[in-house]
Write a protein that binds this DNA or RNA. Structure first.
Length: 921
RNA sequence: GCCCGGAUGGCGGAAUUGGUAGACGCGCGGGACUUAAAAUCCCGUGUUCAGUAAUGAACGUGCCGGUUCGAUGCCGGCUCCGGGUACCA
């Protein structure tokens, strides 16, 4: 019987589905295990061979855990809101819901062929009103809560109101916007809309004026993580800074918890580091500098309070409110021009221009509170409005940017830390002894910082302060294809919908472009009003809204009363294993953690962190092939002969190249222009192509479609080969050439179950000791390797085992049963077929992982490598329990040792029992 | 610039704790079976040198240096590649 993968794979997939074997329910008798993939955004292009890598890995782990007796939750769904479907809608007028539906269908088709063990009954789609009802609901909760810094928790806005009634806001320590203090009497005397305005400054979901990344081409704002190098991540369009009224989420309130929480997670160091950098905690002091002859003060943040004695000037960001106040009449024109120019520049221009040092003097002076000296106040764009206080004290001797500025404008440079040579450059290191610094002189930098902060606090100049780089998340998008805000506006007031009014569904419109006046597309929905009268919020939520809590929804996807029921959440708790790409390191993975912590504060879920362990699969790169056309001709020269000609390198479709040999006939048919192409071949009569590893993309003709691989080799081969390519977390190129190897292995494995006449035939004989050793080595290795996500070596172990058993012509039922079970996480179809042919009942996934028996692996003898000066020269087989002295004796009496020792004395001999022998001569 | 990874045969990669470097697979070379091909099976395959040969020797994990009886792995200094991030005070 042949290994007919096509037939058997389809048969079993249908059978699995018919029997719902991947559906799971809460089961208190079994330990739970939750394995999650980052759900895909279904694009029009479909899957290429790089996409399923992580899905295959998580599927293997899920199946393995299930074999080990766990109740495994392994769901899949679709992130269906988003920009590409909307842009397609703008171009063609096709409703994005239709585009999304088509793409999802295609994705599901492709995914289903790979044989994943998803519980599709739990599928979620972010664009489904029954799903986004809960996205809107969570938003409302954020609207109704504030963050108490004292308890480090979100609390109901009602607690805040009753506190205002009693004491005003004087004793409240909240994560909030800048707001003046007021007493209870003032609060109680306010009109309702005044109160609303005040409260808006405290809400976790709040609406405020802020500087945003505005992308004119896309007609929408973007979050910081959606902007890369000053252009939009999607599309690469210019992004400018603009002030706008926007909904925002107070992620910054959670900065501390987001940071400390990282220590409890089993994530890669690089990923944690990325999050730490993004959160950007820096410790220092905030302090005031008095203005000379004025009543005003400048508040600055510094991480180097120890260097205040070297602060010889101050710099304001062009955006700073102080600029106008502090600019002297005679400097007004110059400063205004400078500020105007700075404001009109895009992020990108500012970055490109970073080496150009610019700035203008305001005419005002501040007083250095420690030296008493007057120091000039400048405006320069190297100080950012959005970080710290938008103003700095500049210490040119110990900050490279201040140094460059001082050199440019001839400002005094006073060294206050011993170390560098400030003639040439600033000395930025935080080590050395203080000088020129009065009471700090002689102290180390570390101690000087502590002493200085103490002094600043005693003299009431300022206080210790921790600053974060993290910004609140801008939550409005001026687009159509997203979740509507459950908010309407009435008489200037912002009113949330009630829970029973959810979901607020997206209305139909006839044109998906922004309006002529630049308002969001929802403006076109004329009849879309609350109670027929009041305007809804017209912007929609960003992409990360729907993906921030989908892992909770999978626990209880059909619940229409709650986001997730208490029972379901208490059972499934959190994600034990999350697999996905690193591109979400600072976007989705920060927002999700924030979202989760918020829901945790409300007591709705039991875990503070959503993703216990996270594994980032590496990118699968493309492997492109090239042909070389001789210039001004239609003649192509083979790779190794091309140096004799002037040639153009041309990408050629990898699907018509095999082992870098071009299929010339297929090439001629590929493009009409190549129909009459001529070729200069090598001695072997073949055309050899060049190759390069680059990103997989259509334009490089190196895209490989998993459907084609499955058609030719089957899903099991695809699954094994994707894992065999290399370590999961590493980037590696896809090269279809190697796939024959795993395909051969599966055929070999198949043949183990058949006799010479090709009939299925297993023997019920007792396995020999040798056979037991082979299979138990495999059982041990597979368990260990899967646990540490070393899937490429697992595949190697299967091959070794199959080779060994084939050599022994072993057809023992006992042995092969274990083999097919341990293979089943990687190759579920073939395993299922052989499981059933072997006469077993049920499905292989419920068979239970075989128990490893160490007794079969015990050896009577050990092979000792004998090394001379650390280089192994021969090996010696000795009984396992040979004593150290005995080993030494045997080694020394060996002929080969004697030969090596001729004329030389032994300096030392090292014997490590059970390991090796090393002789130093 | 800063932070985090990485570099091993012609290629993808293995070596789990400092103990036989190159598992497994691809490719390549040779052979068996076959009228032939495919499939399958067997042998060889890091480099260099010596030898008719069996075999033997030297070198070898990006580079330079160190620790150690012993280093792909640890330490110091570089080079190159990938990723992240940036006038963040």
């Amino acid at each position: 019987m042949e290994y007919n993968f096509k037939e058997l794979e389809q048969k079993h997939r249908e059978n699995w589905q018919k029997n719902n074997i991947y559906e799971v329910k809460e089961d208190k008798n079994k330990p739970k295990f939750y394995v999650l993939d980052m759900f895909p955004y279904p694009s029009g292009a479909g899957l290429h061979v790089g996409h399923p890598l992580g899905y295959i890995a998580s599927d293997i782990y899920s199946r393995y855990k299930r074999l080990k007796g766990y109740n495994v939750l392994h769901p899949m769904g679709f992130d269906a809101f988003g920009l590409p479907a909307e842009q397609y809608a703008v171009q063609t007028g096709q409703h994005p819901a239709i585009t999304a539906e088509i793409n999802i269908k295609r994705y599901k088709e492709q995914l289903s062929k790979i044989g994943f063990s998803y519980d599709w009954s739990r599928e979620v789609r972010t664009s489904d009103p029954n799903y986004y009802k809960w996205t809107q609901w969570t938003f409302l909760q954020m609207f109704h809560h504030w963050f108490n810094n004292k308890t480090q928790k979100a609390e109901s806005i009602e607690t805040l109101i009753s506190e205002f009634k009693k004491n005003g806001n004087t004793q409240v320590n909240a994560a909030c916007n800048d707001i003046p203090l007021f007493e209870a009497a003032v609060w109680n005397g306010m009109e309702d809309d005044e109160k609303d305005t005040i409260l808006m400054n405290y809400r976790i979901a709040y609406r405020a004026n802020t500087k945003v990344n505005w992308c004119p081409e896309l007609g929408t704002v973007l979050a910081n993580d959606e902007v890369k190098d000053g252009v939009s991540e999607r599309g690469g369009y210019t992004v400018i800074q603009k002030d706008m009224m926007q909904w925002q989420l107070r992620v910054t309130a959670y900065a501390k918890r987001l940071l400390t929480g990282l220590d409890t997670l089993d994530w890669s160091d690089s990923l944690k580091e990325m999050q730490r950098n993004w959160i950007g905690r820096s410790e220092g002091a905030e302090m005031f500098f008095e203005i000379k002859d004025e009543d005003d003060k400048i508040l600055v943040f510094t991480t180097r309070p120890d260097t205040i004695f070297g602060a010889t000037f101050m710099v304001l960001a062009p955006e700073s409110e102080l600029v106008d106040k502090l600019t002297k009449v005679e400097n007004t024109e110059e400063v205004d021009n400078y500020v105007k120019r700075a404001k009109n520049r895009t992020e990108r221009e500012r970055m490109a221009d970073a080496e150009n040092i610019t700035g203008v003097f305001t005419g005002s002076y501040a007083v250095n509170p420690f030296t008493g000296k007057d120091i000039p106040i400048w405006v320069a764009d190297y100080v950012l409005g959005g970080y710290g206080t938008g103003a700095i004290m500049a210490v040119p001797a110990h900050d490279s940017r201040d140094y460059a500025f001082a050199k440019q404008f001839n400002i005094e440079i006073i060294p206050v830390v011993e170390g560098g040579n400030i003639e040439k450059e600033s000395y930025d290191a935080k080590t050395g002894k203080m000088i020129n610094s009065d009471f700090l002189n002689g102290l180390d930098v570390k101690d000087a910082v502590i002493n200085m902060i103490k002094e600043i606090e005693t003299r009431h100049l300022g206080k210790r302060k921790v600053n974060y780089r993290l910004r609140d998340a801008i939550f409005s998008r001026q687009r159509y294809w997203g979740e509507p805000f459950p908010i309407y506006y009435k008489d200037g007031k912002t009113i949330p919908l009630k829970e029973n009014e959810l979901p607020l569904t997206l209305p139909e419109i006839n044109d998906y472009k922004p309006t002529e006046t630049g308002e969001p597309p929802l403006k076109r929905a004329k009849e879309w009003l609350y109670d027929g009268k009041y305007k809804y919020e017209l912007s929609t939520m960003p992409g990360f809204a729907g993906s921030s809590a989908y892992y909770l929804r999978y626990m209880d996807p059909q619940n229409d009363k709650e986001l997730v029921s208490k029972e379901a959440n208490e059972y499934w708790q959190d994600v034990d294993l999350y697999i996905g790409g690193t591109e979400h390191a600072v976007g989705h993975l920060i927002y999700s953690r924030f979202w989760n912590k918020f829901l945790f504060d409300l007591g709705l879920i039991v875990k503070d962190e959503p993703f216990k362990k996270l594994v980032n699969q590496g990118m699968i790169q493309g492997r492109s092939n090239f042909v070389y056309r001789i210039k001004n001709s239609n003649k192509f020269v083979s790779y190794n002969l091309k140096q004799d000609f002037e040639v153009t390198e041309i990408h050629v479709d990898v699907n018509i190249v095999h082992n870098d040999i071009l299929d010339i006939e297929a090439f001629k048919k590929w493009r009409s222009e190549y129909e009459d192409a001529e070729f200069i071949l090598e001695d072997d009569g073949k055309y050899h192509c060049g190759y390069a590893v680059e990103k997989m993309s259509k334009s490089k003709y190196n895209v490989v479609n998993p459907d084609d691989i499955i058609e030719e080799y089957g899903a099991d081969t695809l699954r094994l080969y994707e894992m065999f390519l290399g370590p999961l977390e590493q980037s590696k190129p896809w090269d279809t050439n190697g796939i024959e190897g795993v395909y051969r292995f599966l055929n070999k494995f198949w043949r183990l179950f058949f006799n010479n006449d090709g009939n299925f035939n297993l023997s019920d004989e007792e396995p020999t000791k040798e056979e037991q050793k082979i299979i138990h080595t495999l059982i041990k290795k597979v368990g260990e390797d899967i646990e540490r996500f070393s899937f490429n070596t697992t595949v190697a172990a299967y091959m070794v085992c199959a080779n060994d058993l084939a050599k022994l012509k072993c057809r023992k039922r006992d042995v092969l049963k274990n083999f097919l079970i341990v293979l089943s996480p990687f190759a579920p179809h073939i395993s299922e077929e052989l499981w059933q042919l072997s006469g077993n009942s049920g499905f292989v996934i419920d068979s239970g992982f075989p128990k490893f028996n160490a007794a079969y692996l015990i050896e009577d003898t050990l092979k000792y490598p004998v090394a001379f000066n650390g280089k192994t020269r021969f090996t010696l087989e000795l009984p396992k329990d040979t004593e150290k002295a005995e080993i030494e004796k045997i080694v020394l009496s060996d002929e080969r040792t004697k030969k090596r020792l001729e004329g030389k004395g032994i300096k030392k001999i090292i014997v490590v029992p059970g390991r090796m022998v090393n002789i130093v001569i």
